[in-house]
């Protein structure tokens, strides 16, 4: 089987400071991978390099495109990369405000990706938007309300709907549950788990919340100081951590 995304030796430094160094892994279709680590460990740098927001200094990110098979997204042309990020990729930001257009109604937010890939029938776009709002548990009656009138959890769910409406195959998530209270987090995780399973999505989730990866991720990668210090199956890494830093991370979680 061809990996959906194959990352090789991704290195990115900010001047003398290392963002992430020599990260390699393969992700197969339907797999969810978690990346954990403390703040400043290079998780987000790595995610942004993979999603094409940052240009890595070295390495390749080979994505199995629908039309042309495996292609290196680092060296492909910008229009192609931006096309990928509108169709096959989705990016869920930590802060919903970064991923939404706050001045545009919920329906417009969900419809934007459809219109960006050529949908020109208002009725169809709106039906799809309503359908997606319901799938992420937002009342269809709020389709014309702006996201500024939504709660934090609703904004985050709207952002997810907006990203998934074009049926992407790979979702990048940067701390999707950050800043939400625990009960809202639980609902969001439940929703994400359902969507990932139903749509057969692959996902790469960056987080510092071990509960999130425990619930969502099949595999786990632990980063520290820009390096991957441990990786393996989620339960294996969390239940039997080998690296000193992973042990520290696992034991730091408060038990209630």
């Amino acid at each position: 089987m061809t990996p959906l995304i194959s990352v090789k030796d991704i290195t990115k430094s900010y001047g003398a400071h290392i963002g992430c160094a020599d990260v390699s892994f393969d992700l197969y279709p339907g797999e969810v991978m978690g990346i954990v680590g403390e703040s400043g460990s290079g998780k987000s740098t790595l995610l942004n390099c993979m999603a094409g927001h940052l240009r890595p200094d070295a390495g390749s990110v080979v994505f199995d495109t629908r039309g042309h098979g495996p292609r290196d997204t680092v060296t492909m042309s910008e229009p192609e990369r931006r096309m990928l990020s509108r169709t096959d990729w989705a990016f869920v930001h930590q802060h919903a405000r970064d991923g939404l257009r706050m001045g545009v109604s919920a329906g417009g937010n969900v419809g934007e990706r459809l219109m960006a890939v050529g949908a020109r029938h208002y009725g169809d776009i709106r039906d799809k938007a309503v359908d997606w709002l319901e799938r992420v548990e937002i009342d269809a009656g709020r389709v014309d309300d702006r996201p500024t009138t939504f709660s934090g959890g609703m904004q985050q769910r709207l952002q997810i709907a907006r990203n998934l409406v074009t049926g992407p195959r790979l979702v990048f998530m940067d701390e999707p549950t950050g800043g939400l209270d625990v009960s809202v987090q639980a609902r969001l995780l439940d929703l994400l788990r359902g969507l990932v399973r139903d749509m057969g999505l692959s996902a790469i989730i960056v987080t510092h919340d071990l509960a999130v990866v425990r619930l969502l991720a099949n595999r786990l990668m632990v980063m520290k100081d820009g390096q991957v210090v441990e990786n393996g199956l989620t339960d294996q890494v969390l239940d039997d951590p080998q690296h000193a830093y992973t042990q520290l991370l696992v034991s730091s979680v408060l038990q209630v």
Binding site: E78, R101, G107, G111, M115, A116, V143
Partner: peptide, 29 residues
């Protein structure tokens, strides 16, 4: 719709005009 000049120029050069329809969508809704 997009306040950044650098971004609008890129959108013109790459023919990414989906956003223009978002404005019309908002009108109709």
């Amino acid at each position: 719709l997009e306040p950044r000049e650098s971004e609008t120029r890129k959108m013109h050069s790459l023919e990414e005009y989906g956003l223009m329809h978002v404005k019309l969508y908002e009108d109709i809704s």
